[in-house]
Design a protein around this nucleic acid. Structure first.
Lengths: 153, 153
DNA sequence: AATTAATACTTGATTCTTTCAGTAATGTTT
DNA sequence: AAACATTACTGAAAGAATCAAGTATTAATT
């Protein structure tokens, strides 16, 4: 659905508004797609992302602050999110040896197995989502989004 | 930050995954920007959106189902979301005269005033967000996002 | 006309998430 | 050592998402 139709406006919207609203609506749809996949595994997109981040550490543990920085949603409560993953057995926490304020977080074997299974499904979904775009268009989208992200708050 | 860096992966990711992750990260940043603006007014992005939709109706009331469709959200939530706006005095609900199952929802004078103030701020933010892009790039972004949205679930 | 089905919305219960303020422990700086 | 900063945890409260069941009204079927 066209954004103008959603906001039922007759006057034409500023281009920047169109772009932002498009972004929000599209991502909403994508999010709900991904959520549907993760649901049977009882993890949220956030949790899935944390697992991916931890896997990316390749053995090396991450501290809470590191995970938080890399997380998609900075506002969420990282402590409790991680604790949920710990409870599920996908993640382990240990006090950092050299700085006892910090905690080392790493993904467990179980977490890795789950991630490997889920990743396949997510990848399929991502392909389906992006399918309407040609390779060039996809690359262009990535480039444009990257440019937007570079704004200083 | 590049997506590869976030996921700390050395192998190159599939293009579709890059695109989707970029989308999620970017939109999150945008969302948090917009949220910061709305916060002092004590309304969420969702609520702001509903107000915009209702304003778009230009006097004509919308039913819950209509609002819900444009929101892309769950019905039971919509009821409560609207009720919150009613409580704040920004929206009014009335039973539809010709079909008593339906309710007519319209934005109040107060809601309109709020919207006019907030809209200006949001518009400024949107401009700032999109500023890194040229006009052509912005149009291209809109086009690409529109293509993605067209996927059938 | 009476029964059944569909529509439009509401409510309750549950769980998850976010936010905020405060606590505590450890490090760093002066 | 004292004061300050950093890192993480906790409790309480409010918000939002989700699911299922419930009410009221209208439309369709028999």
């Amino acid at each position: 659905m066209k954004i103008e139709k959603i906001l039922k406006t007759s006057i034409s919207l500023p281009l920047s508004k169109k772009a932002v609203v498009n972004l929000l609506y599209t991502t909403n749809q994508v999010n709900s797609n991904l959520n549907d996949i993760l649901k049977p595994f009882d993890i949220s997109i956030q949790q899935f992302n944390v697992l991916r981040i931890l896997r990316g550490q390749k053995g090396k543990p991450a501290t809470l602050a590191i995970v938080q920085e890399l997380m998609i949603n900075k506002m969420s409560n990282t402590t409790r999110l991680i604790d949920k993953l710990v409870k599920k057995g996908f993640v382990e926490k240990n006090i950092n040896a050299t700085n006892k304020r910090k905690i080392d977080i790493h993904i467990t074997h179980e977490g890795l197995s789950l991630l490997n299974i889920v990743d396949l499904l997510i990848e399929k979904a991502e392909e389906k989502i992006i399918k309407p775009l040609t390779k060039n268009e996809t690359q262009e989208l990535i480039r444009l989004l990257g440019k937007i992200r570079l704004i200083a708050d």
